[in-house]
Amino acid sequence: MTEQLAPMPADWQRALAVVAHPDDLEYGAAAAVAAWTDGGREVAYVLATRGEAGIATMEPAQAAAVREREQRASAAVVGVSAVEFLDHRDGVIEYGPALRRDVAAAIRRHRPELVVTLNHHDTFGHTAWNTPDHRAVGRAVLDAAADAGNRWIFSELAEQGLAPWEGVRWVAVAGSPRPTHAVDAGPGMERAVESLLAHRAYIGALTETDPEDYVRGFLTSMTDSAAEHFGNRPAVAFELFPR
C-alpha cells in the first residue's frame, strides 16, 4: 500500500454487502458500516453460506444455527437488521452462473447504489493465500453488479418479480491487497470490536487468546496499517470499482 487512499464516495443512500461467511464483514468492514448507518444510510447483508464448516469441533448443522445467530447479533451492533443467507455450501462455493444469479437476485431485491464484498484476489497482503469461497463470491459479486441490470441475463428473475436494477454505481472490495479508497474507522471502531466479538463461538474455536484482546488487536493492526495512507487516521480500506 504505497499511494494515498481517497475518501469513499458519500453521495449514496443504500448499500448491499455480499460475502461468503458469517464474520467476513466483521474482520474489517464493520467500522465503515457503523459510520454509514450512523449517517442515515441503509445497509443490508447477504451471506452466501451459514459458515457451517467453520468450527472444527461442531457438527455443520449445529454450527450453521450458531453462526447464523451470531451473524444477526453482529449485524445489529452496527445498525444492520436485514441479513439474508443464500445457503451455498461452506467451503465449496462454486463460481458460476448459479452463484451470479443468486447475487444478481439479491441486488435486484435491495436495489443498492454501493455493493460491498470481500477480497476476490488470490492473496491477502500479497503473501497469505485467500480461500476459494472468498475468491468465488468476490468475483461473482463484481460480475453480478452488471448482471443485475441486464434484462437478458437471468431473465427468469423478472418473471419472479425482480426487475433489472442498473443503479449500482460502485463495488467496494474490503481486504483487498490493492486498496484505493478508505473510510475513517475512528467513529465506528468500538462497535466494530463489539460486532466481531459477537462471533464468540467461532473466535473461541479459532484462538486461545482472550477474545477481546484478539479482536481489538486484529482490528487495530488492520486499521492502523491504512492510517499512513489516509491522513494518519485509522481507516477501513477498500478497492473501489466504479460502474
Rank of each mutant, 00 (worst) to 15 (best):
N130C: 03
N130H: 01
P132S: 06
P132Y: 08
D133T: 08
H134G: 10
H134K: 09
H134S: 09
R135K: 14
G138V: 07
G138R: 04
R139S: 12
V141T: 04
V141H: 01
V141L: 01
L142I: 12
L142R: 13
A144D: 05
A144C: 12
G149M: 06
R151Q: 11
R151A: 15
W152C: 04
W152L: 12
W152H: 13
I153Q: 14
S155G: 00
E156Q: 14
E156R: 11
L157E: 12
L157I: 11
A158Q: 15
A158E: 15
Q160E: 15
Q160D: 14
G161Q: 01
G161R: 03
L162W: 01
L162E: 06
P164V: 02
W165R: 00
W165G: 06
E166K: 12
E166H: 09
E166W: 00
G167H: 05
V168S: 05
R169K: 15
R169E: 14
R169P: 08
V171T: 14
V171L: 06
V171Q: 04
A172E: 01
A172F: 02
V173Y: 00
A174R: 07
G175C: 10
G175K: 08
G175M: 08
S176A: 15
P177T: 11
T180G: 02
T180H: 02
T180C: 00
H181P: 10
H181L: 07
D184A: 06
A185P: 13
P187H: 11
P187R: 10
G188I: 09
G188W: 10
M189R: 15
E190M: 00
A192Y: 11
A192E: 07
L196R: 02
L197M: 13
L197K: 04
L197S: 06
H199I: 03
H199K: 00
R200C: 02
A201D: 14
Y202N: 00
I203Q: 03
I203M: 04
I203V: 12
G204Y: 10
A205P: 09
